[in-house]
Design a protein around this nucleic acid. Structure first.
Lengths: 223, 223
DNA sequence: CGTTGGGTTGAGCGCGATCAAGCGTGGTGG
DNA sequence: CCACCACGCTTGATCGCGCTCAACCCAACG
């Protein structure tokens, strides 16, 4: 339930807490509990009462909407240092989406009531929460725009470029999670992601397992 | 530049300010300016420095991403009482999207720096801003899920249902803006919206100009 | 070896974008 | 008063993207 030293370090470096003076951050950490989950574990389901929100420490979490007919649509993938479901602090206390782990995951868990209380006493905490909300809002809007403007190969290209150092002409990195998860994140079926990767071969992208190599970053930008 | 009585009333009832004790809200209103725009006026462009965010008083505002090749994708339509672009308070001070009026519009304009300062002094202000951010975040996520799970007629049905009283069996309302604007909001070409409306005729929906009549709300729910 | 699970490849198809033409209404001017 | 136009919307035809289903590949593992 309590954090070990390593977990505490990751948490203090998270987007949310790193905004705060360390004394404040440490005070909040005192009230945080750790949750560990196996791969594919449900974390919460849409419609459930929401007493907590979370920051990922290790692993990746998938947040998605489950439709009446059982289909799923991902609305966000969250990795180490990222916070999700802070929205429930203000939406009536009910989760509007499902969350499950993609793999083995550890998370820090914040009590909604306690954090509301903290935020009402120290303006800095509210501001840090706003920064986190703002970050997630931006990503969501970016996602809508990307979905609506770009084809599958273009979205994949965008994703790859986000994982390249700004001013490199060539790059190589390793996907931090399964391709099927990436497909969901981009709003694609796994088959479509696969085909998008082959389409990007002509732009100098080669994929071996989770390793992605980009021959010419600039060429990829004009896709 | 200054608000008249009527505008002040609308503003105090907006989602953002109505969260606050009236003394606090009134203090903020003192520092707000009014901006009026003709139809189709640009409010800001992506990439511009962001010194303000806005609450709509009358009319509707369209926020959208402009792609390299000149295509546009709406990411939100904001009407009276709704606040947009609060995200710029925390994203580095640059607008990531374009905004333009859909029709003649009046807006209240908040100075980012001033509101940051207020928020750092009074926790309640931060909390109200969080509520607003949270609301916009929820809508954005809902939009992603809706886009990815539902077809055009289903999305239109959803929109219609959101404008029906919860427990009515029949309903009728008037679109507050042009159909082409609704199409953009739902991520559709105007033609697709038109076809979606015809498809919904079989579910008891009839459309005359901006008037929408729903014969059987429950039938529409199972579309 | 057989199995299992993630990924790829192929064939078919449905949704919605695009382009183009037609419709209806409101506004203007002769 | 009516001819004309402008604009928002509808309707039709075509086409391409990406989903679906199915088969196959391949590496890891017992």
């Amino acid at each position: 339930m309590k954090l070990n030293v390593r977990e505490k370090e990751i948490l203090l470096r998270s987007y949310f807490l790193s905004e705060l003076p360390s004394a404040t951050a440490l005070k909040i950490v005192e009230h945080v509990t750790v949750a560990s989950h196996e791969a594919r574990d449900p974390i919460f389901k849409q419609g459930e009462k929401a007493d907590y929100f979370y920051t990922v420490l290790t692993g990746f979490v998938r947040v998605f909407r489950l439709s009446k007919d059982g289909r799923e649509a991902d609305i966000g993938i969250y990795g180490p240092g990222e916070t999700f479901a802070e929205g429930v602090m203000f939406n009536g206390g009910t989760h509007r989406f499902c969350a499950q782990t993609a793999e083995s995951v550890t998370m820090a868990r914040y009590e909604v009531d306690k954090l509301k209380q903290f935020a009402s006493q120290d303006p800095a905490i509210g501001i840090a929460l706003m920064a986190s909300l703002s970050r997630n809002l931006d990503q969501a809007l970016e996602c809508v725009a990307d979905d609506r403007l770009h084809t599958a190969p273009q979205r994949v290209a965008n994703f790859i470029l986000q994982n390249c150092p700004e001013n490199a002409s060539t790059a190589r990195f390793r996907l931090p999670f399964q391709k099927s998860l990436l497909a969901g994140k981009l709003g694609l079926a796994p088959e479509a992601l696969s085909r998008a990767f082959s389409a990007l071969k002509s732009a100098g992208v080669s994929v071996h397992g989770r390793i992605i190599e980009i021959g010419d970053v600039n060429a990829l930008r004009n896709f």
